[in-house]
Design a binder for these strands. Structure first.
Lengths: 395, 395
DNA sequence: CACGTTTGTTAGTAAACCTTACGAACAAAC
DNA sequence: GTTTGTTCGTAAGGTTTACTAACAAACGTG
């Protein structure tokens, strides 16, 4: 069985990004779609709860043991699920045969194009653990040259994989539509580049492409139980990924999360590359903060408190922008991703403080603003989630 | 057949408001669920496209003529669909028998509790056209007394209905959970009032309750093709209703849209009832604007330009709060609902202008900010949509 | 060792939609 | 006036799906 034989799943996890009505597939539902859904449900149950018996899965999903047996035998035939032998612990009744997703059946490839100087990628197993890494220096490549680099990176990663690859996930900067066309990525000199289609043609594997921040939030969503998460990704630029009601938000123009050039506050601010004053990116992008701190270090007699003041003001600006979003969506979780030496300290404190002062405490009582725990690999892990979700309906 | 016999529809339109994972029903999908979905699909096709033949519906939905015939005969037996006789226009082939939703089979009841002085309600037909109205002065009633008024209003409306009532929709201020419990509505003195359950018990009819602004945006969503709409409802308070990816957003604490007490800008502002300075509600609520204008009229020599300046500043404040939300969600449509004499003019202009200046033009190019066309009845119409969607899967 | 419990399978049933086929009714062309 | 082709709605039969019922196997427990 080839990986491309795997069904796409209409309900469980497939609508990775909701798409405009015009692009949506027909809405009719056939019995076979129900089966795909239940199939994905079994995989999802095994994925999140780990090895267990068929009877356990039946209880968990509400389907009967008969149906689960049928679905599982199909999944075993496809190599996605494996029997692990009998359960060890002693209890009455016939001993259960444990089954689990065969985590050594497939690997995944993830690619992160969001860094300015380097394209990074990894081969991961189905758990999202990284088994091999690769990176290629970008050296300022743009346009076709940049694509050639991506293609080379993917080829290199595929050669590293030791078992069949389930699919490839790519997080790209810029505006990416649901078909994986990079509509616009100024830094890479891409416009209307059909990245998904070209990589799929080159590799004959399922390929999923989305905006880097939108990919990153998938990694974070897997780590929480919540249905609403906002991730702020601070690097060379500032972007956001958003999950509302358990579904990623893509936006009418496929540009959801592009908050870098929203103006903050009513008192001006630093001049931004886009020509305006006080854009969020001009306030809090990593290069800007680093430059400000470096400039300060150049000055004689600059103390830690001046350091903190810069970061505190930046954190405050983030809080100002987030307050209306948190209020409108009643978000329960906001996650920060970026250089910890800049963000994890007074910046974070100031952002939390500002957010609390600017939203209604009674309503947003259980709001949490925290640092991501995924560090540098957040986009790679998110890419893995994207592939799992797209190919198996698992998330 | 009683209206309560009608199936709830798991896919097509039923998940009116997404709910937290813990409250969600089991995810398994049985063949009968598929049928419910397809049934709703037929109703939706007829509802939006009007009278047509079974074969037309088959082509539209992708299901076969056989299946459509089967579903339609079921719907006819239930009294929801009626045959209208043969199609008139001349074309080859056997003449088609036109069918349509029987718009005279049921009426709907909608209730709007969002106004400060009066509870308003209406009996509507399936198209949402109002056939009868009723209102009861609130006279400051709170707590149980307010509920008694609502109950009386509903009773009065049900007595007015001439044909069976499909269901009752209620838009209430405050925080309303997916089960129709008003968790908190300070103005009405309600906390944890099970409004849905009590009205359902009193009337033996399907009842749907949601926040007034969240209800209002349903009416607006029906009027557009877009999957993302933000409605700002300005009255005694300021609230928002939000649809993202075609689905209403309810929020982790069921308080999505509660933006009245988000602080605007970084330069202070009027003192708000909540104790802080510069809340959106303190800037732009209808009573506050009216009072400001009245105060101005008391002053000698106040011209139209001073009038405009007050409204312009208010509109600007709204734009400041909306910019991050529009940017983060990449919204394509924002709608204003409230007193036209305040909002439809310089207020509107200033809001549009501010929004454009504070978001990225290339990304939010096709953003529209417009006045609602539904005037005073927006909550009533939204309540109708809520009932239609909940009972028939039609939206 | 008999008994109850749990697991996973077999066999048969009901529901849902499909394909195929057909009669009825019409317009257009001859 | 007849033939031809089209369209509509229905009927019959088949496939897929998940269900209920029943059972053998395998295990603790009293």
């Amino acid at each position: 069985m080839g990986a491309s034989d795997l069904l796409t799943v209409p309900f469980a996890g497939a609508p990775i990004f909701t798409r405009p009505r015009a692009l949506r597939p027909t809405n009719k539902v056939l019995p076979e779609h129900a089966r795909s859904h239940n199939r994905a449900l079994v995989l999802q149950t095994l994925y999140t709860a780990g090895a267990q018996s068929r009877a356990d899965v039946a209880r968990e999903t509400g389907l009967t043991r008969v149906t689960i047996s049928d679905l599982v035998s199909e999944l075993i035939a496809e190599g996605l699920v494996a029997e692990l032998g009998q359960r060890e612990d002693a209890r009455p009744g016939k001993p259960a045969t444990l089954i689990d997703i065969d985590r050594s059946a497939f690997q995944l490839v993830g690619v992160d194009l969001s860094e300015h100087e380097v394209f990074r990628g990894a081969v991961m197993n189905l758990d999202g653990r990284i088994v091999a890494r690769a990176e290629l220096a970008r050296d300022g490549a743009t346009g076709e040259a940049a694509f050639v680099l991506v293609d080379a990176l993917v080829t290199q990663l595929l050669a590293t994989a030791t078992i069949p690859v389930l699919g490839i996930g790519v997080g790209s900067p810029g505006i990416v539509d649901p078909l994986g066309v990079v509509r616009s990525a100024p830094n890479l000199g891409w416009s209307d580049l059909p990245l998904q289609a070209r990589l799929a043609a080159a590799t004959s594997l399922p390929v999923h492409v989305a905006n880097d921040a939108n990919v990153a939030v998938l990694a974070e969503h897997g780590a929480t139980d919540l249905d609403d998460v906002l991730l702020i990704k601070i690097g060379h630029g500032v972007g956001a990924g958003l999950i509302v009601g358990g579904r990623p938000v893509i936006g009418g123009g496929f540009a959801a999360g592009e908050i870098g050039h929203v103006v903050v506050g009513t008192d001006g601010g630093p001049r931004c590359a886009c020509g305006r004053d006080g854009c969020l990116e001009a306030w809090i992008s990593a290069p800007r903060l680093t430059a400000q701190l470096a400039e300060l270090d150049g000055t004689r007699g600059a103390g830690a408190s001046a350091h903190d003041e810069i970061l505190r003001e930046a954190g405050r600006r983030l809080g100002i922008v987030l307050a209306p979003v948190v209020g409108a969506l009643n978000l329960s979780e906001v996650v920060l991703s970026g250089p910890a030496e800049l963000l994890d300290g007074v910046f974070h404190e100031a952002a939390v403080d500002t957010l609390r002062k600017r939203t209604m405490a009674e309503i947003n009582r259980d709001l949490r603003l925290r640092m991501s725990e995924q560090a540098q690999d957040i986009v790679l892990r998110g890419a893995a989630v994207m592939v799992l979700s797209g190919q198996l309906g698992v998330s």
